[in-house]
Simulated assay, not measured.
Amino acid sequence: MNVLIDNLPKVIDGFWLTLQLLVVSGVVALVLGTVLAAMRVSPVPVLRGAGTAYVTVFRNTPLLIVFLIIVTGLPTVGLQYSFFVRAAISLSLYTSAFVCEAIRSGVNAIQAGQAEAARAIGMTFGQSLRLIVLPQAFRAVVPPLASILIALAKNTAIAEVFGVTEASYQLDSLVRDFPTALWWLFGGIALGYMIIVFALAGGASLLERRWTVAR
């Protein structure tokens, strides 16, 4: 217990970096996933094909492979980003494929008559998607999006393999230095991840309830 308390600043720094990875990757994944979902329901065959190809590739590729490609591949083409940025890119690209499918399922759940009514009053596909379909789709997919973000929070642990000093990296480092305190260290780090997960789940539940009342 004393080892965990004495090294609490390191643990907090690790979780601060984990939260940064989660927020940056989550925001990018939500934006990119929304764009991909719009492409997948687009009437333009080329856009639908590109969106489908992206989702197929990234949903069927292990996250570790995505990390390896981004972390080792970007420097070979002259993009010398920090390990944090490369980790965020990897997580964003991977997670956006799952966000896309969640939002697309929400779009498909919206009654077709609403889009037809929008076109009848002169709205373009983009306008009806942005103003009518997507707002309702987001309300319908809060729980699956929350699950995706929770998975993202846990997936940030892979970044430690590539030198990003987030929470899992700090755990490995402390266990090597203090092997006799393994269970206390493990428990402390696990508790930190549980707090993040419960915060995401609670936020999603609150948002879902507020949107349900608003309807």
Rank of each mutant, 00 (worst) to 15 (best):
P9V: 05
V11N: 12
F15E: 12
F15N: 07
L17F: 00
T18W: 01
L21N: 04
L21F: 11
L21G: 06
S25Y: 01
S25C: 10
V28A: 15
V31A: 10
L32T: 15
T34G: 12
V35Q: 12
A38E: 03
M39P: 08
M39N: 13
R40F: 09
R40T: 03
V41K: 03
P43C: 07
G49R: 13
A50L: 13
G51K: 10
T56M: 13
T56P: 09
V57N: 11
F58V: 01
N60E: 05
T61E: 15
T61I: 09
L63I: 15
V66L: 11
V66A: 12
F67D: 07
I69Q: 09
I69F: 06
I69H: 08
I70T: 14
V71I: 10
G78L: 15
G78H: 11
G78R: 06
L79S: 14
S82E: 14
F84A: 08
R86T: 15
A88S: 13
L91H: 09
L91D: 05
S96C: 15
F98W: 02
E101M: 07
I103F: 01
N108I: 10
A109F: 02
A109W: 01
Q111D: 15
Q114F: 04
R119N: 04
R119C: 01
T124V: 03
T124D: 00
T124W: 04
F125E: 03
G126S: 08
L129H: 03
L129M: 04
R130A: 11
P135N: 06
R139S: 14
P144H: 10
L145M: 14
A146G: 14
I148P: 04
I148G: 08
K154E: 09
T156F: 01
V161R: 02
F162W: 00
F162S: 02
T165K: 00
A167W: 02
Y169C: 00
Q170K: 02
S173K: 03
D177L: 08
D177N: 03
F178L: 06
P179S: 04
T180E: 12
W183A: 06
L191C: 04
G192W: 07
I195G: 10
A199T: 12
L200I: 03
A201K: 07
A201H: 02
G203K: 07
S205F: 09
L207H: 10
E208C: 07
R209G: 00
R209Q: 08
R210N: 01
R210D: 05
W211N: 06
A214W: 12
R215H: 14
